[in-house]
């Protein structure tokens, strides 16, 4: 691999690394229980939870490592961790 001058890299190039493959448990969001508080989005260490057009929360499974922090912190219990089937 050739090194760029100063070993520089494009901003946010880590998106090439699809960390979703690490996942063992998948967070499943229940919109009926969701109060749209956005806490899951704030506490996600990956920053991979986004707001949908209806203001509900939606994880990006391409990057979600399945740590379960969102499910643990969700005040409404709207997120359930389910084992991945591969």
């Amino acid at each position: 691999m050739a090194l760029a001058v100063g070993c520089r890299a494009r901003p946010g190039k880590s998106r090439d690394n699809k960390t979703g493959s690490w996942r063992v448990f998948r967070p499943v969001f229940d919109n009926e229980k969701c109060s749209k508080c956005g806490l899951c989005q704030t506490v996600c260490p990956e920053g991979c939870i986004h707001e949908t057009d209806e203001e509900f929360m939606e994880p990006d499974y391409t990057y979600c490592k399945g740590c379960g922090l969102c499910a643990e912190e969700c005040p409404g219990g709207a997120i359930e961790m389910k084992q991945e089937e591969k």
């Binding site: 880590s14 998106r15 920053g47």
Partner: peptide
């Protein structure tokens, strides 16, 4: 701070 970094899950 973009997705795709290699920290442990729940870091």
């Amino acid at each position: 701070f973009e997705c795709g970094h290699r920290a442990c899950g729940g870091c």
